[in-house]
């Protein structure tokens, strides 16, 4: 959905999205990395199961919720990627144990 700038010289950061290796850049938020990944990263809501993607990118809408390193319902737009981070696209409600 979004493409990167040619002149972006930031260091690559390797993350996994549902097990698929994705190259993000240093300083990307999880949501930015997902939107630039070219993958289908739509989550589904806990209420009706409707598909959603990030909407506000500034921490207020909670449509960027994602499972990060085994913890559900994290705000992807407020978390910076780290090397080796494991991201899972969340479908519906989170599980209590994750």
């Amino acid at each position: 959905m979004f493409k990167r700038l040619q002149a972006d010289t930031r260091k690559p950061v390797g993350i996994f999205v549902d097990g698929t290796a994705v190259t993000a850049r240093e300083g990307d938020t999880v949501s930015a990395a997902l939107l630039a990944s070219g993958l289908d990263v739509r989550r589904t809501t806990a209420v009706s199961g409707a598909p959603r993607l990030p909407y506000c990118m500034m921490g207020v809408c909670f449509d960027c919720l994602v499972t990060v390193d085994g913890t559900g319902n994290r705000q992807g737009c407020l978390i910076t990627v780290r090397e080796g981070m494991r991201i899972e696209i969340q479908k519906g409600k989170r599980e209590i144990g994750r």
Partner: peptide, 13 residues
């Protein structure tokens, strides 16, 4: 007075 804490929705446990 009573107080309540409410969490986000989670799968039934």
């Amino acid at each position: 007075r009573g107080q309540i804490v409410v969490t986000e929705r989670t799968l039934p446990f």
